[in-house]
Amino acid sequence: MSRVATLYRSTVGKKVLMAVSGAVLFGFVFVHMVGNLKMLFPPDAAGHYAMDVYAEYLRDFGYPLVPHAGVLWIARFVLLVAVGIHIVSAVQLARLSRAARPRGYAKEKSLSLSYASRTMRWGGVILLLFIVYHILHFTTGQAHSSFVAGAVHRNYVVAFQSPIVYGVYFVAQLALCFHLYHGVWSFFQTLGLSHPKYNHLRRPFAVGFALVVFVGFLTPPTLVLVGVVS
């Protein structure tokens, strides 16, 4: 146990927490994106939208073994813990960095690998603000112009008929795309998942993951905006 504490106390340990909590979040993001593609399907013969059926399924996942919405609440709890760990570690690491170089250079050229790596912190703040807005928008409804509980497909379509809402989601997905581009690659590096034979695949994997999530999330809203999905 004392060794695990040693790991946690080290700068590397905090990064490991960052990577593991980040992996939980990007696992969630991927599943969420796949779920949202249900918006592309037409209603069945009884007039039920695939999105609504899917939302119902999520609420009842595991029932009757667990109570209604039981698994959903467990998942929400895990995500909340992951976001909490991710943010606390980010703040600790940002403070350590500031302490390690209180005075910068008069002239400095960035040699970082990418724009994405330099914008992790501010990009993360954008994502946090977005997550709060997003929950108020589609889960609790306060930020929605005409929210109807349970009518997921309808709420979705009404929301993205507004170009402003579409713009907000577009910017957030762009921020997520950048965060994933560096985060996914960084995940392998931090956990030491490296091997000379496979290292060249890590960057393409991160690019692919970030792009699939970006395109996957934005396809349904775009089709709503142009009126193909209603």
Partner: peptide, 26 residues
């Protein structure tokens, strides 16, 4: 400070030390 995998070190290193070694250390 803590490494956040920016990779600036590798670019700056006059000996071309690879950040793969950082993954190995981790």
């Amino acid at each position: 400070g803590n490494c956040t995998n920016h990779g600036a070190c590798e670019t700056a290193c006059p000996k071309g030390i690879s950040i793969d070694y950082i993954a190995q250390l981790n």
